[in-house]
Design a protein around this nucleic acid. Sequence first.
DNA 1: GCAACCTTTATGATATATCATAGTCTTTGC
DNA 2: GCAAAGACTATGATATATCATAAAGGTTGC
Lengths: 143, 143
Amino acid sequence: MLSSIVFYALDKAIRSYRRMAQANIDRAGLDITVDQWLVLRVLLEHDDLTQHDIAERVFKDQASVARILALLTRRGLLSAIPLPHDGRRTQLRVTEAGHRILEAVQPIILQNRAKALAGISEEELALMRPLLDRIALNCAPTS
Amino acid sequence: MLSSIVFYALDKAIRSYRRMAQANIDRAGLDITVDQWLVLRVLLEHDDLTQHDIAERVFKDQASVARILALLTRRGLLSAIPLPHDGRRTQLRVTEAGHRILEAVQPIILQNRAKALAGISEEELALMRPLLDRIALNCAPTS
DNA sequence: GCAACCTTTATGATATATCATAGTCTTTGC
DNA sequence: GCAAAGACTATGATATATCATAAAGGTTGC
């Protein structure tokens, strides 16, 4: 039965990609994880998000985001300045070091994607996308 | 660019599925994780595997498998009897309690898969499979 | 038989995933 | 304005992911 192994293939594909991506970042001597990169990337474009907002965008848990933000801040890739109008939140800004590492990682990410998708056409990707979205939708808590 | 978001959709689909699957197992009052279930399921059919063999089958790390096995044993779902011909290894056998929980989880897994794939045809799945396999192959360390 | 090598397992360190909850701050209803 | 409700962040507990390595056992060459 095909359905019984689709999830295994899905899991294997995404895990393989993540391992390869991380290995290539490491190999370039860049000290950042794929997940940290993803969050930092989001903050580059939106610096007024709550942890919950960030979590939604990167499809993670708020608790995971909190810990990733703490790590990014500890590593000097992110600065967190208290917001005057809300004592709970902080203004998150990618630092200079953060910008540098984002720029250094960017071409590696593009290479990784190209390598992962070698031999797959845009048409095939276009076929796959709605199916993946449908699975996510089918599994969503509210549905 | 489609390629830039395929991995996000992939990640989201598999994470959504895993969350839903775990939630349904929890809701049924069954105290086991999806990963533990997966490993236990493999051991049901093959009880002569090394941790490395198991890791390959479930696409995990040997270290992860070692910890999952320790947990399964600690919970009484698995028994580990030293093998006489190799002092490093043990004979892993699913216990009675292990069999019971596997049987209880099985129908839930089937429901989960059905729910996740609602509205997707076998033909569409058949299209997706080779693409996922191709991604995994493209990302494999040796390739 | 022994040394070198290989296999297998266990574990330390760190990062992430998840749930639950505590602590703090803000908003809303009245 | 105050109390209740809600929003936001931090953190504890546990599980998994990954790399590296230690520890122990097995195999091979000689």
